[in-house]
């Protein structure tokens, strides 16, 4: 596989299906320079965010969660308010569900799956980080209420997915109502 093929493969599959052959034709005419590679990579990142609303929402939720963790660590956010703000971040899941319906005109369950995927990225990362014990915030490395850290992480995982289901469904349902209203208004 050549570098040109690799560059093309950085784009989302749906985008490649639509524009891949043309882009391949143009890349074949161009000399590969660092500037051109950076241009194509930046463009493919934008297409990932454009094609898949859940990726944008996962990125937003990831940044939100990271900011919150840092905020608690640096004392900017009281630790007692962590759960409140953590769940406020789940509005991104609501957005993922709603946006998927608005963008792709897809069904409610596809939108809910989109919300699930968005939830998986930051939560999965948190679990991974905690599992390798890289972070030692809030006594994560010691048992809490008689249960291991992994027990609480698993509980958090289940809760997050239930929240993703709830928020994703809510977002998708609202978006479908908006779509119906738009059609009616036309």
């Amino acid at each position: 596989m050549t570098l040109r093929d690799r560059l093309l493969r950085t784009y989302p599959r749906a985008w490649r299906h639509e524009y891949g052959p043309e882009m391949a034709g143009i890349l074949a005419h161009k000399r590969l320079t660092p500037a051109l590679v950076a241009n194509v990579v930046a463009s493919s990142a934008r297409q990932h965010l454009r094609c898949d609303p859940w990726k944008t929402c996962a990125l937003g939720l990831g940044l939100w969660t990271s900011g919150l963790i840092l905020g608690v660590r640096e004392g900017l956010v009281p630790a007692s308010e962590f759960v409140y703000w953590y769940f406020a971040g789940h509005l991104f899941l609501f957005a993922a569900g709603g946006w998927t319906v608005l963008r792709e005109n897809s069904g409610i369950w596809r939108a809910t799956a989109s919300s699930f995927k968005a939830a998986l990225v930051p939560d999965g990362t948190c679990i991974l980080i905690a599992s390798v014990n890289m972070l030692r915030y809030w006594g994560l490395s010691s048992p809490v209420h008689g249960h291991s850290v992994h027990y609480w992480i698993s509980i958090n995982f289940v809760i997050t997915f239930l929240v993703a289901l709830l928020f994703g469904l809510a977002g998708a349902s609202l978006a479908r109502i908006v779509n119906r209203f738009r059609r009616f208004a036309r």
């Binding site: 043309e22 890349l27 051109l36 241009n39 463009s43 454009r50």
Partner: peptide
């Protein structure tokens, strides 16, 4: 226009 810029705009 770089190819990436071109196709981002076309899309």
């Amino acid at each position: 226009l770089g190819p990436g810029t071109l196709y981002t705009a076309i899309t």
